[in-house]
Design a protein around this nucleic acid. Sequence first.
DNA 1: GGCCCGAGCCAC
DNA 2: AAACGTGGCTCGGGCC
Length: 751
Amino acid sequence: MELNFDGLMKTMEKAALSERGAAERVKEAQGKKARVKAATSWEDRWKQIFGMSKFKSGLDRQRAERVKAAVENGVLGMDVPPEKITGKLVSEKFRELELAEKNEKIAKLLKSKPDNYRLIQTEDQFKALLADLRHEPAFAFDTETTGVDVYQDVIVGVSLTLPRAGYHVYIPVAHNNAGPQLRRSYVLNGLKRYLTDPTVGKVLHNAKFDIHMLLRHGMRMRGLAHDTMIAMKILNENEPSVALKNLATRYGKFFGFDGESHTFEDLFGKACFADVPLDMALIYAAKDTHLTWELYKWQMEHLTKREDLLKLYRELENPLVDICVEMEQTGFAVDTAFAQEYGEELKGELAEVEKTLVAHFGEINFNSPAQLAEVLYDRLGLPQGKERSTDVKTLKGLKGRHPGIEPLLKYRELTKLLGTYVEALPHQLKADGRIHGSFNQVATVTGRFASREPNLQNLPPRARRLIVAPKGWLLLGIDFSQIEPRILAHMSGDPHFREPYLKGEDLYSTLAARVFKVPLSECGDGSKYRKMMKIGLLAVMYGTSMFTLSEQLGISVEEAHRFIEGFYDEYPDVYAFIKDTWEFVKKNEYVATLYGRKRRFPGHREQAIVYDQLAAKICKALGTERVPLDFWSNKGIPKDLKRKFGAVKGEVERVRRMAVNARIQGTAADIMKRALLNLYEYTRARGWKINGTVHDEALLLVRDTITLAEVEELEACMVRAAELEVPVKVDTEIMARWGDGVKKGEYKWVA
DNA sequence: GGCCCGAGCCAC
DNA sequence: AAACGTGGCTCGGGCC
């Protein structure tokens, strides 16, 4: 636990963790249903269904109309005749409530204006501000904009908090129908030397957004000292919302903000900030930087108590913000002609397959699992699992049973490729004809990047081919080879496991030969032993159950168990690594990566203690060393033990899997982030760009005059990012089209 | 018509 | 009772 306020954090983190649990959501939904049922009036019912705080859009008015209709038709079955609804349309009533609620919040907001919030509207006021800014080694900064599209919207005002001078300002520059305002260019020019000076610290909440917005107006901000959104995720990766106002509402009492802080949407709904009156805008916007600064100080209290986290934040996450901005700004070029052509080709294929499917199954929607299940299991009487699933695995199992299955699988493949990628990507182009997705450095609990709008990390090979390098440029893909097993080799310290890497042998072949006790010559590329070993090692790292592993390998559960036991016998330190992780997370409720990133599991200790105690009792009762694989069907386990153990088994084992995985996957993520920093330094000096990252691969945009020596220097940037006691290897692909390149040895170098 | 969720599936 | 970790997108279908 990083933050001191144990009770609060514990509750918070528990809530956050449970939010991830589907069971909790179901329970919540059931509770909601019950409350709705119990509501005695239409108003109550509305509240329960939508929540009073959510009155904001025209959409809700539409809903309201429907509620009214439902009331009138007696559908809701309530004893509230329509005429009793205050004589007005329901929608009007809601509009009234909505307005009243908003106005109340806004009135409260206006009344709350502190004396040190200042509106800057004249040149004199602005010059006085700049004079004070000269004495600030660091300040908080924020932009207000017409919207959240960083490639379309514009800045309508900026706010600053000057901590030494002790006041907070909002400078409107493009508000509609408002009082006197300075011009945007004048204000940005005045602030430029402070915003671009790397030695003047800027503190922002979600700096990436503001850096993009400043770039819209031709300014490159430098000198990000602290990003409170990112730091929050480092302090608590389970934080459910890192929206500034939500953090203020939740933690504000620890840094001087009592009561609720309303989000923009709460106060202004879908309005454009340019239309917000200046007095209101001041309080809202100046509060943003004010909050950001206080949150920053509070976060620093906690970070300084945890040197490892401070280091992780300062040296890794904070400088990465600039790289995220660069990746997003760079974007990906799409070969639209190829996309068009390929799309047509796929559509042609799809039409053929559809014809076949109609002949087999009739005119149904083949995209609908429900309709499909009805045809497959009810009409055609194919053998159904208990779940009537229509997923690929199930369908493959039914292949021999019906001639329509094969084309159905083909249909799935084609619609996925076409609908999710080939047709979708060209729609994502921005004004400059490139795709600018967003990369989020703190979206995952393990530290990996996430990518969205579109997700460029899950393009299948065939869709990657739509992405090309612009003329005069090349795409460079440098990926870490087997980074996760290498991390396991390093962290476990297992000398036998490290051996193949140190000797330059193939990992899986060597492992397979040892575990299966067959000559190395029988474990070469493509051999069944090597294949099994590869899956087996993945199972070890991901904590796969013996049941799943047996299915994957097509062997019995007992055989799978013997296989993994055999592996642990040969590599005892790997086993110890896993057991140590379990012990550590039981004791500390967190695990850490090689570079200090933490994943916390609040509340695990208690459950793990129960788990271990009950496991010991079961072993004693059975006279075995471990809880048997057939725990659930085992008749020898006393009923009450079975019930009690069953209650904690799933969750404890889940945490243990996540903990082991977080150490390995998280360390790999750290290494990639370190690599990106090295690459950024190298490419920036040459005007090249970092394009993106796909977990163990860095994508770069480089000039086509690049030399072999330069490629090798880029590779060195990657390799030296990993400080492992086993060699680290990278592979580079040189491409004009993503996924269609050559290895550096095969490339025809210009120079 | 938008929101939400599950099923299914793509990547590493 | 549940069986593999981390994500995001599309679709159908239910909701109002």
